[in-house]
């Protein structure tokens, strides 16, 4: 196991190091200045996609939107025509037609064909997003009332709590109800296997711009995966009613170039050393205690 992991990590780290170098060369800046996975005011569509799964969701939804808009417009047009043409003034004598077998067969068969057109890309997306490919690292996520704990079993098994920042303590640029003290950090371009769990009630770990959502259920480890294609900050919120602070249980994911990620891991190992192997803790570490 460790041997295979090491080989795998070596193999995967090669392109990532290259990507990191390129990214550093181009951006040359911290992730915060790059992409932000968050909604915009008056937004009418999805958040921008920063993972392959979310990109596929965008594409599939574009198809669905065409189909459902066509259906709605068709029905509206028929209703409009009926209102204009078949009102009592214009058409005083109603027809007595009550059957048309051909018509009835057509409006049964055509929807079936439309559904097949939907089902094929739907199942493709489902199986692609629902089966974790060969992962570069594993991230364990544990939900609590009302914060998340993250654990990195492949990087020395350190853990830390990700505590929401109260409104009064926000720094400029940190969005309300979305920012946390210790964001979860992943390397750009790495396939991350996510194992989601809970130690009290059901929560749901969700990051819209990465196409992520998975229930955190006590007694069960649910698996999902993602790959952040670009460096950036991606926000999400707990997506299963979990009690009084359900609205204030944010998720903040930072994707860093591999080199920066490695540097972060080294720092995090020291910072969170005392937290290792402790899945349940209530207090946060010193830094944010000071912040309060």
């Amino acid at each position: 196991m460790p041997m295979r992991d090491m080989i795998r990590r070596l193999l995967f780290s090669m392109p990532m190091v290259c990507a990191a170098v390129v990214a550093l060369g181009i951006a040359g800046a911290a992730a915060q200045e790059g992409n932000v996975g968050e909604a915009r005011p008056w937004q009418m569509g999805f958040q921008d996609a920063f993972s392959p799964v979310m990109q596929e969701i965008h594409q599939f939804h574009a198809l669905l939107l065409v189909i459902i808009t066509t259906i709605v417009v068709l029905v509206l047009a028929l209703l409009g025509f009926i209102i204009v043409r078949f009102n009592a003034k214009r058409n005083p004598v109603p027809s007595k037609t009550s059957h048309n077998t051909l018509l009835e067969v057509v409006w049964t068969i055509v929807p079936v064909i439309v559904l097949v057109v939907i089902a094929i890309p739907s199942l493709k997306l489902l199986y692609h997003s629902g089966r974790t490919p060969q992962a570069d690292l594993t991230l364990k996520v544990t939900g609590h009332q009302w914060y998340w704990t993250y654990n990195y079993p492949d990087q020395g098994d350190f853990s830390f709590d990700s505590i929401p920042i109260p409104e009064g303590d926000l720094k400029p640029g940190q969005p309300r109800l979305l920012a946390v003290d210790n964001p979860v950090v992943v390397p750009v371009g790495a396939t991350v296997q996510v194992l989601v769990n809970s130690d009290d009630v059901i929560h749901s770990w969700a990051v819209p711009s990465l196409g992520l959502k998975k229930d955190a259920t006590p007694g069960r480890t649910n698996e999902t995966w993602f790959r952040a294609d670009v460096p950036g900050v991606f926000y999400g919120m707990c997506s299963e009613l979990c009690g009084v602070n359900h609205y204030f249980m944010p998720i903040e994911v930072h994707a860093l170039p591999k080199a920066e990620f490695d540097a972060w891991v080294e720092k995090a190992k020291e910072q969170f050393a005392t937290n290792s192997h402790s899945p349940v803790r209530l207090a946060a570490n010193g830094s944010q205690d000071a912040a309060r």
Binding site: V53, M54, S122, L125, L126, G130, K213, S239
Partner: peptide, 12 residues
């Protein structure tokens, strides 16, 4: 209805 896209919509 689509389990794949419901990731984006569930509980929203």
């Amino acid at each position: 209805a689509n389990g794949g896209i419901d990731t984006a919509f569930h509980d929203t």
